[in-house]
Nucleic acid binder design. Structure first.
Length: 476
DNA sequence: AGTAGGTTGAC
DNA sequence: TCAACCTAC
C-alpha cells in the first residue's frame, strides 16, 4: 500500500499536514513533484521563480534522502501522472496542500473528482495560511475589503498553532521507473543571468527556518522603525520562502509566541501584521479571482491610462533608466536580486501607475517575471492597492513623490548609491534629484545628465498634476 | 503605507 | 529659520 504526497508549493517537511496525513496511513509514502507550468497559465512561474523552485526542490530532495526517502520528479499532465503513479505503486491515497489561485484551484478540483471517481482517497490540506479564505468573514457573511477590519477579525480568532515538526525518518518510497531529473525540468536560465540571485538567496526549508530564527532574534526588535529604510536590512526577507511553502505561517507564529508571548503586542506586532497582509491577499484572491487582471473597483474599468509612448516608457522603467534615482535603484535591485524592498515597491509602482499613467497590470506582470517572491495573491493586492482600484486602496490622490520618499527613507543615500553607482559622488542634498543640482556640482561628481545617468523622463510636478486630473474622473 | 501648502511657535 | 502640526486634495 502506498500514499502519494503531491508536493507543489509546500516544499517542506515541517508543519506539513499533507505529509502527516500520508504518514498516518502507515503506508509507504511517495513524495512527488509534477512540473506542469501550463496548468498555471496565464501565471506560470517567471524566470526568477523558476530559479528559486529549482534550488528549493533540490533542497527538499536532499532533506527527504537524509530521512530515507526521496523526491520523485515528473513532468506532464498532472492528472495523468498521478493516475499512472497510482497504478504503478498501487497507491490508494493522494494528499496535497491547497493552492488558492484560480487556475490551480480549478485544476485541483478537477483532479480530485477524477481521482475519487477512480476509487482513490484524495485529500487537500490547508497549510499555506493561518486562516482558510472562507473562515474569516464580515458580520454580513461577506468577504472583507478593508485590511484593518480583516486583521481585527483574524486577531480575534487567532489561537496558538501546534505545528508538527519534520519527522526524523520517513518510510522508503516504493521502487518505480520513470521520472525525470531536476535538471531536465529546465528551470535554470540558459543564459546565466542568475549571479545576483545566487549571491542574495539560499532557497530551501533549512535556510527559511534559519532566516526566521535570525530575524526573530535580531531585526524584529527594530522592525517597525527600520523596515521602511531600504538601505538597511531591517525586513525579514521571508516572502520567497513563504511563497514556496518552505516555512509555514503557523510555524512563524509559533516561533513568535515562543519568544514574545502575545504576537499582537510590541515589538513583534508590526511584523505579524505583515503576515496578516499576506493572509488578506489570499482572502481577496480567493473571493475575487478575477482581480489579477481586473480592477476590484469597477469604476476603474474605463480609467484613462496613457496610450502614447507607453512601450518606451515601460521599458525605461523596467530597466531602471527613468532618471528618478529612487525608482531606478528599486528597479535595478529587482533585476539584480529578484527582490525589491517593500517601501521601494510602493514608490516604483506609484511612479508607473500615476506619474506615467501606465496600467498597473503591466507593472504586475513585470514583477511576476522578475521577483523570486512572485505570488499572485500578494502581487495583485499590492498593485491594485497602489493603483487605487483595489481593496483598502490608497486614495486616488495618494501619489508618492520619489524625491521626498528618498529623502525620508534613504536619508544617507546608501540605497541609491548602491544601485545607481554613477550618482555616488553626488552630495545627499541632490542625490535624489540630480536634475536640481548646480552644473558645477554635477561636473565635479562626474554626472552628466542624459549621458552618465538619464535626465528625468517626466517632470514629477506636472505628471503628478496629470495623475490627479485622471483620477478625478473615477472619483465617482 | 502621501503630498503640498499653509500656520504656529520655538529658537 | 525650521520643525511640528493641520488640512485639502
Amino acid at each position: 500500500m502506498t500514499a502519494i504526497l503531491w508536493l507543489r508549493r509546500d516544499l517542506r517537511l515541517d508543519d506539513n499536514p499533507a505529509l502527516q496525513a500520508a504518514l498516518a496511513t502507515g503506508a509507504a509514502v511517495l513524495p512527488v513533484y509534477i512540473h506542469a507550468p501550463d496548468e498555471e497559465s496565464p501565471w506560470e512561474p517567471g524566470g526568477a521563480s523558476r530559479w528559486w523552485l529549482h534550488a528549493s526542490l533540490r533542497s527538499l530532495d536532499a532533506a527527504l534522502r537524509e530521512r530515507g526517502s526521496r523526491l520523485h520528479i515528473a513532468r506532464g499532465d498532472s492528472l495523468n501522472v498521478l493516475k499512472q503513479l497510482a497504478a504503478e505503486t498501487g497507491a490508494t491515497q493522494v494528499h496535497w496542500s491547497r493552492l488558492y489561485d484560480p487556475s490551480t484551484r480549478e485544476r485541483d478540483t478537477r483532479i480530485k473528482q477524477a481521482l475519487r471517481a477512480a476509487g482513490l482517497r484524495c485529500e487537500s490540506h490547508g497549510s499555506a495560511l493561518l486562516f482558510e479564505p472562507w473562515e474569516i468573514s464580515t458580520a454580513e457573511h461577506q468577504p472583507y475589503r478593508v485590511f484593518s477590519a480583516f486583521w481585527r477579525a483574524c486577531v480575534k480568532a487567532l489561537t496558538e498553532p501546534r505545528p508538527v515538526a519534520a519527522p526524523d525518518r520517513l518510510p522508503p518510497p516504493p521502487e518505480i521507473d520513470g521520472g525525470v531529473s531536476l535538471d531536465a525540468l529546465g528551470l535554470l536560465p540558459r543564459i546565466p543571468w542568475d549571479d545576483g540571485l545566487k549571491a542574495t538567496w539560499n532557497p530551501g526549508e533549512f535556510s527559511a527556518r534559519e532566516r526566521t530564527e535570525e530575524f526573530l532574534d535580531g531585526q524584529v526588535a527594530d522592525y517597525s522603525e527600520l523596515r521602511d529604510q531600504p538601505g538597511i536590512p531591517g525586513t525579514s526577507r521571508l516572502a520567497p520562502h513563504l511563497h514556496f511553502g518552505e516555512i509555514s505561517p503557523r510555524r512563524i507564529l509559533s516561533m513568535v509566541i515562543e519568544r514574545f508571548g502575545d504576537p499582537t503586542a510590541k515589538p513583534v506586532e508590526a511584523f505579524v501584521r505583515e503576515v496578516g497582509w499576506r493572509e488578506f491577499g489570499y482572502h481577496l484572491l480567493y473571493h475575487f479571482p478575477q482581480t489579477p487582471t481586473e480592477p476590484l473597483n469597477r469604476q476603474f474599468a474605463d480609467f484613462p491610462w496613457a496610450s502614447a509612448e507607453v512601450e518606451a516608457q515601460l521599458r525605461a522603467w523596467q530597466r531602471g533608466q527613468t532618471g528618478i534615482p529612487m525608482v531606478d535603484a528599486g528597479m535595478r535591485e529587482l533585476w539584480h536580486s529578484g527582490w525589491m524592498h517593500n517601501r521601494v515597491r510602493m514608490v516604483v509602482a506609484s511612479f508607473l501607475t500615476k506619474n506615467l499613467l501606465i496600467p498597473w497590470q503591466d507593472g504586475a506582470r513585470w514583477f511576476w517575471d522578475t521577483l523570486v517572491d512572485a505570488d499572485l495573491a500578494s502581487n495583485t493586492l499590492g498593485w491594485q492597492w497602489t493603483a487605487g482600484c483595489g481593496a483598502d486602496a490608497a486614495p486616488y490622490f495618494r501619489v508618492f513623490n520619489p524625491v521626498r520618499q528618498g529623502e525620508r527613507f534613504d536619508p544617507d543615500g546608501r540605497y541609491v548609491r548602491r544601485w545607481c553607482p554613477e550618482l555616488r559622488e553626488l552630495p545627499d542634498k541632490y542625490l535624489h534629484q540630480p536634475w536640481a543640482a548646480p552644473e558645477t556640482l554635477l561636473r565635479s561628481a562626474g554626472v552628466k545628465l542624459g549621458e552618465s545617468y538619464p535626465a528625468p523622463m517626466v517632470d514629477l510636478g506636472k505628471s503628478r498634476a496629470r495623475a490627479l486630473a485622471a483620477y478625478e474622473q473615477v472619483k465617482g
